[in-house]
Amino acid sequence: MNIKNFTDGLIKNNAVFKQMLGLCPALAVTTTMLNGIAMGLATTAVLAGSNVVISALKSVIPNKVRIPAYIVVIATLVTMVDLLMNAYLHDLHKVLGLFIPLIVVNCIVLGRAESFASKNGIFASLLDGLGNGIGFTLGLAILAAVREILGSGTILGVSLSTPPIIVFILPPGAFLALGFLMAGYNRLFKGEI
């Protein structure tokens, strides 16, 4: 039962390809695979943390002001991640830039808080947060890998000596690559979901 909380978010309800949440960072930072994975892990940290805190506080927060309360919890965690990354992973922080504070308005985080953590226990919420976060990271990594291989002819910085198709690291390539990957996802998992 518990393990299902974790695996559901990985592929069946994948944040990027199935739920289509958190698309702004998914499109913006996936020019290289390293950036994609880093962004995914930062989001996972916030998601797991906010799920745990909100699940622990669910009986204290009045129903009417729950959304602002959730947003304050999430914004606090995001500020922590932002400051920590600025201190210890400064180069990465500079590349991801604006999109670290923008985790606050990433629909996945608020979505899981509202639809899962506010109704379930702490441990289940932790698993749900981790599963959805890693699913998001997976989606970002796949999209980033496609864009890096096609757009700059490298993977994780290692050259593949294929000719780069520049458009894939430019904004239009992000939309095109995601469109085709989504079609592939639909084709692979059609009928099973």
Partner: peptide
């Protein structure tokens, strides 16, 4: 079929 809905929208946006 596989492109119905969101995928074709993304290609259009591209």
């Amino acid at each position: 079929t596989s492109f119905k809905g969101a995928p074709v929208a993304f290609v259009t946006a591209g």
